[in-house]
Every structure is written in C-alpha cells, then in structure tokens.
Design a protein around this nucleic acid. Structure first.
Lengths: 173, 173
DNA sequence: GATGCTATTGCAACGCATTGCAATTGATAC
DNA sequence: GTATCAATTGCAATGCGTTGCAATAGCATC
C-alpha cells in the first residue's frame, strides 16, 4: 500500500494530527502516523467519512486488545447512532490498510488490535483465562517447521494458541 | 458418509481413524466404543435421552470435520423438531466425556470432530481456503518451545493456524 | 408400579457478526 | 457551483451460538 510513498493530499486534513505520536518507530515502517489516512484512502479510491473518522478516534484511544463489540460500544459513546455493520465494515477496510489486525479468540469472538506493533500471536490459558502475546521469535520454531515441511507461511497475527499455563498445568512430568 | 474406513483422498484434510475399526486403540483409553455411553453418562449422574441418542447417531456417520450448524442440520434431517440449543449443549457434554472435541476455525465458526483420533491442530490457507491437519510431531517444535520457556502446555486440538500455503504464497524470498 | 429428585429439554430472547439493497454522500470532473 | 459516479451508510434480515427459565422426563429408590 505504498508506504511512505506519494504525498497525495496537502490539505488541511493533515493538520489534524491530534496525537503527537513518536514517529520514527523502527518496528513498523509505513504506519508512522494516522494523519495521512484520508489521503491513503483516497489514493485507493476509498473515502473519508465521519463514521470512519470516529472509529479512528476510538482506535487512537485504544491500547491492547479489544473485541469488535467493544469497539462498537465505544463508538456508540461518541455517537449513539452508530451502526454496528458500519463499524465492522470499516474495520475490514482498516485491516486491508494495515491499521488494525484481527484474530479470533479461543471463544470465537473477534479480537482487534491496533498497529503499529510487532506482529504477534496469542496464548490463552483455559484454566485461569489469562492471555499472553507470542512474538515472532518465540513462534519461530513453528514458523520454520511449517515453512520447511510445507512451504506454508504462517500469519502470526492470526495465531491463537490455547492450553494450560505453568500455574494451571498439573505438576506432572 | 458411512464410516467405512476406506482410505480417503490424500488431499487437504486427510483421513481420520474410523470409529468402528481398531478398537482397543492405545492412544485414547476410554473411548473404545460408544455402546457403553449410556452407562458412562449414568455413572456421572447424567442421562441418556432420545436427543442425545440422535446426536450420537449423527456423529457415528460423521467423518472429518463438521461445524456446529452442520450437525444441527443433520439432526434436523432425522428429526425436524431438533432444537439447536439442545445440540450444542449435548456437544458440550460429549466434549467433557472426550467423545468429540471442538476448535474455532479461522472464520470464528465452531468446528467439531469425532474422537478417537490423534489430537491434532489445523492449518488454513487464507488464499485458497484449503485446510490440513497438523499432528503432534509437526507441532512439536512449538510445543517444546512454549513448554520450556513458559511451562505452557498447548492444547493441540484447539490450535488453528492460518497463513498462505506453498501454492498461494508469493514466490518471494 | 409409584414416587421424588434433578438433569435435560423446549422455547424465547439475546449477543455478535455478516449480508443485501436502496438511499445517501464524498470526491472528482466540468 | 453543479453534475456525475460509485463508495459508503443505514437498515432490516439472517446466521451461528448462548443463556435463563419453566416444564418435562430420566433414573434410582421404594
């Protein structure tokens, strides 16, 4: 999606960089700021609408993980007229743009998180329901094994692993 | 599909052990046959009902993987009065007994499969939507890594991995 | 066979997410 | 500023799965 490429829109929209994020994050190259999102949308023939603006506002105030329903709820706080389907469709668009990513939790619900952040999977304990993140380094053995044996490229961000954590696992072996 | 035990096509989702054959399978101790299920239920203070009998009938004719909705549908073929919630609740019970196991697919739907079968995870290609099974041997690197680093015991049967298969992955790198 | 306890069912309502379609509206060209 | 095109929205309906609760019916006991 042409990260860091063409400066498309000069307009006043870019001035709305409300969140003075520390730019220069080395982890994720092209997602330095959300201020250029309207331009990126238009560059793809997509549109910048009040509803999308609102969801972005919500996402800016979001850290960690949220379910789809939670995002809908927060949008409703800003605008009670929020329509769920619009939120979900916008999330799809944002995922295409690399702004958010989503996975399914062990209970089947959707879980979104906001980029930039290193791509990671999730580890759920079915005993105490705690959750952890699994980064590429930790998952590397699996990624390597599947790549070697099948040429399969794992999407780490969709990886949800469940099991028993050290505290909940019976002290066998 | 009768559980005939024919070798199934080699493609995605390979054959699983048929139910009728190979009793005394050392892998799964207590599930030698379903004939004693009524007794096992009663031994736990549970009950043997026509609805459960029917679901078992459906499961006996099931190979591979089914979604919850598919099971409901098949039950409805036998008895149009089937109530979805009863089916799902019975599946919960059967899972507790080790008769079936379930995981969530990448699209969030529930996916059940019938035991006995070696515990395995699933591999989904987001490009061509094919699916494969991942057995313990293949996942061993991950299982070992998580056990070592965190003492975490992975439930392989709940493992759903998505990504791009060898055919769909761009030939880069 | 009758009784009593309670697991289970049926039903209705709910929650989360998706989809189809007509109406709206953002972005561009004139 | 106005016209034009299609992306997007709002809305209603749908699908899958869960939950609460009153009524039913296994099953053990007498």
């Amino acid at each position: 999606m042409a990260p860091g490429g063409e400066p498309v829109s000069p307009g006043p929209l870019a001035a709305r960089a409300s969140v003075a994020r520390r730019t220069g994050d080395p982890l994720v190259a092209g997602v330095s700021s959300w201020a250029d999102l309207p331009a990126r949308l238009r560059a793809s023939g997509l549109r910048w609408t009040p509803q999308r603006r609102m969801l972005l506002e919500v996402l800016e105030g979001t850290t960690g993980h949220v379910t789809g329903a939670e995002l809908v709820e927060r949008c409703r706080e800003l605008d009670p007229a929020t329509i769920p389907s619009t939120v979900y469709r916008t999330l799809d668009v944002l995922e295409d743009l690399g702004i958010v990513s989503h996975a399914h939790r062990v209970d089947g619900r959707e879980e979104f998180h906001v980029l930039p952040a290193a791509e990671h999977g999730h580890l759920y304990c079915t005993g105490c329901h705690a959750a952890w993140e699994v980064d590429a380094a930790e998952a590397q053995p699996l990624l390597d094994a599947l790549e070697r044996s099948r040429g399969f490229r794992v999407q780490l961000s969709h990886l949800s692993i469940s099991g028993l954590c050290g505290d909940c696992a019976p002290a066998t072996t």
